[in-house]
Amino acid sequence: MRAYVVRRGLQVIPVTFGVTLLVFAMMLLIPGDPARAILGSYATPENVATLERQLALDRPPHIQYVTWLGNVVTGDFGRSYSLNRPVLDEILERFSATLLLAGTALLITVVLGLTAGIIAAVKQHRWQDRAFTVGALVGLSIPSFWLAMIFIVVFALGLGWFPTSGMRPAFGPSGPLTVLHHLVLPATALALVAAGVIARLTRSSMLEVLRQDYVRTATSKGITRQSVIMRHAFRNAVVNVVPVIGVQVGFLLGGAVYVETVFGWPGIGRMLVTAIGTRDILLVQGGVLLVAITYVLINLAADLVQAALDPRIRLG
């Protein structure tokens, strides 16, 4: 396992490198005078001069990149001109809200997707499987921002079960239950499409695995049907599902942009939408970099979990 971890971990380095290049390229693509664009039209000439020096904007692009990378690595993402505070402070604060939302959505995705997929496979050709097929089709064809709006109309405005928007600090006076109350709708809206993807994949892997000889062996041992399905079939089927869960995290982070906007959730997605509107380039850069690196690390984690589950991968 150790060799695999090292090998897979090393792959993260070039990928992360590529991510920083792309994020840096955003700066090069700004039309006109970058320092002025970054600082906005009300910036004083001194401010513009300081920033140009700081970002080496008068130097060739590769020097600019190295300078920028050096700043970023030491935690200096610059200042947000529209919020007048360090970019790092802002993105970390916003990102924790997104993590709460996307993390909850991931939990829903995994639990719902795996459970529905297992049931549909085990009950193939029965009503459970047909209900699943219809449900997955509908779930997969509705974009999450649209689902978010339907949720608001039905469950918040119509039935009044949940608040329409906002978030409360988890450990403030309002307590975790209030936070949960605010989380249910956006997290579910965000999760359903990904859950559909996971459920379909789980179903097909389970159907594949249930045909295998070792499942017959397991049955021939006299263990319960439940053990055959979970310990033998699912344990093998999930090996193929785990990496796709990692990929789905990307969709959850991307979908968070819409869902946070619709639900007024103070996460990094909504921050990015606002920052793009106000052309707060450094804020956009910082936010995108953080999200991209998170995605890379989650996929690393997914691959490591997969290797932990399948000895043929980790032992080579």
Binding site: D213, Y214, H232, R235, N236, V239, L309, D310, P311, R312
Partner: peptide, 12 residues
């Protein structure tokens, strides 16, 4: 069974 490779569970 006939094929011991496919008859044993690969992940246990």
């Amino acid at each position: 069974f006939q094929d011991p490779l496919t008859s044993l569970n690969p992940v246990l």
